[in-house]
């Protein structure tokens, strides 16, 4: 009888452990949203004002050298279509969705950021060496989901362009 109780208890603990284990590599936006307080944005009017207007998207270099990347995920594109970041520098990613739930992942890395409409997902990324990564959407978002891909280019620190204030870097063809 006692043995059976212990077994049930251990099984329950194991099953409960599975939940954080599956979340380990995911930056869980709903959870962060709950823990850090609300950071609401209106997904329908991102283009009108605020942080995600189109000329503010891309890589921003702060005066202190910090790097922030702002992106929009929408059916079926990431905007901007190619992101440029320096290697070996912590990159602060801020991304939001204009329509449905997406998940931003860089193929070949462990980063997977869930993107929800109405909230800003934040993540700290760091890429140790230069390279090119395919950016894919890993949350089914509709008919064109499988083609929702873009690129991430990590360049050596000295090759990263010096951005003036108000200027945003990206490597999408203009």
């Amino acid at each position: 009888m006692n043995w059976r109780k212990l077994r049930t208890f251990l099984l329950t603990v194991l099953v409960l452990c599975l939940i954080p284990a599956t979340r380990y590599y995911q930056i869980d936006a709903p959870l962060l949203h709950f823990l850090k307080g609300s950071r609401d944005v209106d997904p329908l009017s991102l283009h009108l004002a605020g942080e995600f207007v189109e000329n503010n998207l891309g890589t921003e270099q702060g005066a202190d050298g910090s790097v922030t990347v702002r992106m929009i995920a929408q059916q079926y594109l990431f905007v901007p279509h190619c992101i440029l970041v320096p290697a070996g520098v912590p990159v602060h990613l801020r991304i939001t969705s204009a329509d449905v739930v997406h998940a931003l992942a860089f193929n070949g890395t462990d980063y997977n950021v869930k993107v929800l409409p109405g909230t800003i997902s934040e993540a700290q990324l760091q890429f140790s060496s230069p390279g090119e990564f395919k950016t894919v959407c890993r949350e089914f978002c509709g008919a064109g989901h499988y083609a929702m891909r873009s690129e991430l280019k990590v360049v050596p620190r000295d090759q990263f362009p010096v951005l003036r204030s108000g200027e945003r870097g990206n490597c999408a063809a203009q």
């Binding site: 059916q75 079926y76 594109l77 990431f78 279509h81 329509d99 509709g142 008919a143 064109g144 499988y146 083609a147 929702m148 891909r149 873009s150 690129e151």
Partner: peptide, 22 residues
């Protein structure tokens, strides 16, 4: 019908119809 997944071009019909509209 399919777009181009390699370059990240979604299929036209997933927004411009007849499959789906935005």
């Amino acid at each position: 019908a399919f777009g181009d997944g390699e370059r990240g071009i979604p299929p036209c019909q997933s927004c411009h119809g007849p499959v789906a509209y935005r």
